[in-house]
Design a protein around this nucleic acid. Structure first.
Length: 833
DNA sequence: AGCACGCCGACT
DNA sequence: GTCGGCGTGCTC
């Protein structure tokens, strides 16, 4: 039997299947989706079996065998292997990169090399004159250990690296390679009840009086009747390990190590909840989803429900319906809203049938949750982006909550969008996709609004009513220019200042949003105009108050903040721009005694810090929750009655085609945080551009009006959803080389597009057109000591852009000199700046 | 990605 | 005349 294997080398030249013989004893174990260790170019690598065949495509003499099978159960299924192929085509990444993204990090095996002595009786070191090659204590040590890791050996005898190499060549030492997972399986010493219960009861009667403890322990285990960890047993029943061991030696109890699964939610009792009665609007939407799931139709439905319209309840009842049909469901949530609150709701409804996958789990915990899915112990997976790869076999429903969230796009290779992968995977399974949002992305909205095919219903499911008919909170827009004219130079407008005081007096809570972390955004000398910039990136440094450091938010570079100007030695160094740290300081100054929780990437790096901060706020241990956009998402606190946006312009003025959309979404989301319960809420938005349509429409809670206006702009400028984009970024240390290569690349690409007959501006109205902009320097023209150039490709119609790109890049990748230009391709980029 | 094979400068 | 530089090409 022959296995076609994708080896774990993410390069273009190895991005194809390689044939291997399956050893006889593994034939019944190796399947499509198996993870194997294979010899490849003189070493052993991890690979995935993507196909089994009778005969090899190459000369059988060149054929090698699979050296080991890495899991008893294949971690991948055929549908995922096909999906990975699709991803590698669509997103221009290698097949193995896509495959790796689908399995938990714990299964990313690395080859380890082991050394042992050659104990073949035929082999004689004396005969070959090799006795003096290696020191005796090394030989003894290896002999005693039987097998040692090459790394360890080299650490212990650092001067002998060449000698070890020679000994391997001469056959004095032997080498074995095997793949070791990056996985620490926790083993727990576990005590088992007696195998022969009758005999044990009998023995219990005839125990000597002085072995009272043993008798007690044996009685305890007989009564319990099931295994338990030794530590827990001793804690409950008392006694020492010695007395247990004595019982084990007598054969009355069993004891051995057991692999333990970590359940991060073990021991937590989730309050079981029953389905709530649906409002008419919810009911209609639910019925539509349920019918689609029942038909096994892979349609993508857009659930456009305002904040507080009860989307989650609709999700849960739809999942219930899906499970009743014997199918499984995947729920994707933005990482940031995968809060304990959210998990609780799903665990409460579906109990142990839910696996939770999020980034705050350790590798081991994540692997355990994943295994629950793979071994069919759960029916529902809820998690961030990568949960879309949950290894279910019969998916009936995929839900993507807050579908407009940019975190569904992975920024590293494979640069996939979970929404697009979901639609593709749903097609393989005949599953329904539900995209839920109060502020759908323009792409999804446009797709769902398209005239349905004859006989089909619209894919757009509106839910405009809020549960309990609570009104949307009133939103005040404050023009910060007139504040300044009236002599208010503070970062708080008079209205926001007064509103904060009211909350403090009434003991209610406030949420303040500022989409910029750090203390100040740039540092400038007022004498000479010097600004502090990162030495590795073309970007100004941000001052962080706590560490008194200037930091680069792109590469992490940090330096001590200067007291005087490094350029002209003047003392007129000033900090400009406001970050969350500055606001925190200002709050303390203006409102003495105010309790503030600051939440941004700087305060939430620790494992559970995010939850901890939210919990504290929920317990009303603070008056103000101040943070970057992470405070805008999915929080639900009854005592929050004020939401303040300190500067709506931060996101509005970014030179990116999505900046208006992002601002509208952010403002709408954050406004939805106020007054969700019995207390009425209030929203204050501060801005320097109060007349901008993104702000006006957000103030009026008018999504439709925003979309109308935004679509006009997108149409004029030629941006999605009127076309699709691909961003090609090229980088190199040397600017002239980069400049020349990027020009050549763009020229080749234009030539190829012209050959296809699609080159030209999109305004022409042709159904198939492709426009290549650039190359130009990237907005961040240097990052981590590499210069960056980019091309933006706009296209419309059915054009295989990845294929054209691959052809255009080929001469710069294959066999190019050592210092090659790096190409990075982002299909459907979220940000092009 | 690694590793081996192969063609030109500073050493015995 | 050799050791070693890293350019280039292959890996079932």
């Amino acid at each position: 039997m022959i296995a076609k294997v994708i080896v774990d080398v993410p390069s273009r030249q190895t991005d194809r299947p390689f044939d291997y013989e399956v050893p006889k004893d593994l034939e019944s174990w190796v399947e499509v989706g198996s993870r194997v260790g294979v010899p490849f170019g003189g070493r052993v690598l991890q690979g995935f079996v993507i196909e089994l065949a009778e005969t090899a495509d190459i000369d059988p003499k060149r054929l090698k065998s699979i050296s080991e099978l890495l899991d008893p159960m294949p971690p991948l299924l055929p549908d995922l292997i096909e999906l990975a192929k699709w991803m590698s085509d669509k997103y221009c990444c290698s097949w193995t990169t896509a495959l790796q993204a689908m399995i938990p990090a714990a299964l990313k095996g690395k080859a380890e090399r082991y050394i042992s002595l050659n104990d073949d009786p035929e082999f004689s070191a004396e005969e070959y004159g090799l006795t003096a090659l290696l020191p005796e204590d090394m030989m003894d040590w290896i002999g005693k250990q039987k097998q040692v890791k090459l790394e360890t050996l080299q650490q212990r005898f650092p001067d002998y690296a060449p000698a070890i190499k020679e000994a391997l060549r001469e056959g004095l030492l032997l080498e074995q390679t095997s793949i070791r997972d990056r996985l620490a399986i926790r083993k727990v010493l576990t005590v088992f009840p007696p195998e022969d219960e009758a005999a044990a009861r009998e023995a219990l009667q005839s125990f000597p009086a002085r072995a009272g403890k043993q008798r007690e322990l044996l009685a305890f285990m007989l009564e319990r009747g099931e295994a338990m960890p030794l530590q827990a047993m001793l804690a409950e029943a008392g006694g020492s390990p010695a007395s247990v061991r004595a019982l084990v030696d007598k054969g009355l109890l069993g004891m051995h190590e057991v692999e333990q699964e970590r359940d991060p939610y073990a021991g937590r009792n989730f309050q079981r909840t029953e389905p709530l009665p649906l409002m008419p609007g919810q009911q209609t939407v639910y019925e539509r989803i349920a019918a689609t799931v029942s038909r096994g139709e892979s349609q993508a439905l857009l659930l456009h429900g305002v904040t507080g319209s009860g989307k989650t309840e609709v999700y849960m009842q739809s999942i219930q319906h899906c499970l009743e049909l014997g199918k499984q469901a995947i729920v994707l949530v933005p990482e940031i809203s995968l809060t304990p609150q959210m998990v609780e709701r799903f665990k409460g409804r579906f109990g142990d049938a839910v696996a939770v996958l999020h980034s705050r789990l350790s590798n081991g915990e994540r692997y355990d949750e994943w295994r629950k899915i793979r071994s069919r112990r759960v029916e529902v997976a809820i998690g961030a982006r990568s949960a879309i790869f949950a290894p279910f076999e019969r998916i009936g429903l995929i839900i993507i909550d807050e579908e407009h969230e940019s975190s569904y796009k992975q920024e590293e290779s494979p640069k996939y969008h979970a929404r697009d992968v979901a639609v593709r995977r749903a097609r393989q399974h005949g599953a329904a996709v539900v995209l839920g949002s109060a502020t759908p992305s323009l792409e999804s909205f446009a797709a769902a609004s398209r005239q349905p095919a004859p006989g089909k219903e619209s894919a757009l499911l509106p839910m405009p009513e809020r549960v309990g008919s609570r009104p949307m909170p009133p939103v005040q827009v404050i023009d910060m220019r007139s504040e300044l004219q009236d002599g208010n130079r503070s970062m708080f407008s008079r209205r926001l200042h007064a509103a904060l005081i009211e909350r403090l007096e009434r003991g209610e809570q406030s949420v303040l949003l500022l989409n910029r972390r750090g203390y100040s955004t740039f540092v400038m000398c007022r004498s000479c105009g010097y600004t502090a910039a990162c030495p590795h990136c073309d970007i100004s440094l941000t001052y962080h108050q706590k560490s008194r450091a200037l930091r680069c938010h792109y590469c992490g570079h940090a330096e001590l903040a200067p007291k005087e100007c490094p350029s002209c030695s003047s003392e007129h160094i000033r900090y400009f721009g406001t970050g969350t740290q500055r606001v925190e300081e200002e709050l303390a100054k203006l409102f003495p005694g105010i309790r503030v929780i600051r939440m941004d990437v700087d305060t939430t790096t620790e494992k559970h810090s995010h939850e901890k901060l939210l919990k504290q706020f929920g317990e009303r241990k603070a008056d103000v929750l101040l943070g970057t956009q992470m405070v805008a998402k999915g929080l639900d606190f009854p005592f929050v009655t004020l939401v303040g946006v300190i500067a709506a312009d931060t996101s509005l003025n970014l030179p990116d085609f999505r900046s208006a959309e992002r601002t509208f979404q952010l403002l709408t989301q954050v406004a939805g945080r106020a007054g969700r319960h019995h207390l009425p809420g209030e929203v204050v938005i501060q801005t320097y551009s109060p007349e901008h349509y993104a702000i006006v429409t957000a103030q009026q809670h008018d999504y439709a009006a925003f979309v109308r206006e935004e679509l006009k702009h997108r149409g004029v400028m030629g941006y999605p959803p009127f076309c699709r984009l691909v961003l090609v970024t090229m980088s190199h240390e040397q600017l002239p080389l980069l400049s020349s290569v990027s020009e050549q690349f763009a020229e080749r690409l234009r030539g190829l597009a012209a050959d296809e007959g699609v080159l030209g501006p999109l305004e022409g109205g042709l159904p198939r057109a492709m426009d290549i902009l650039g190359p130009v320097a990237s907005p961040i023209s240097r990052m981590k000591d590499r210069y960056r150039f980019q091309c933006v490709i706009k296209y419309r119609g059915n054009i295989d852009v990845p294929a054209l790109l691959r052809q255009a890049m080929a001469p710069f990748i294959e066999g190019s000199p050592l210092k090659l230009v790096q190409f990075s391709i982002d299909v459907d980029p979220q940000v092009i700046l």
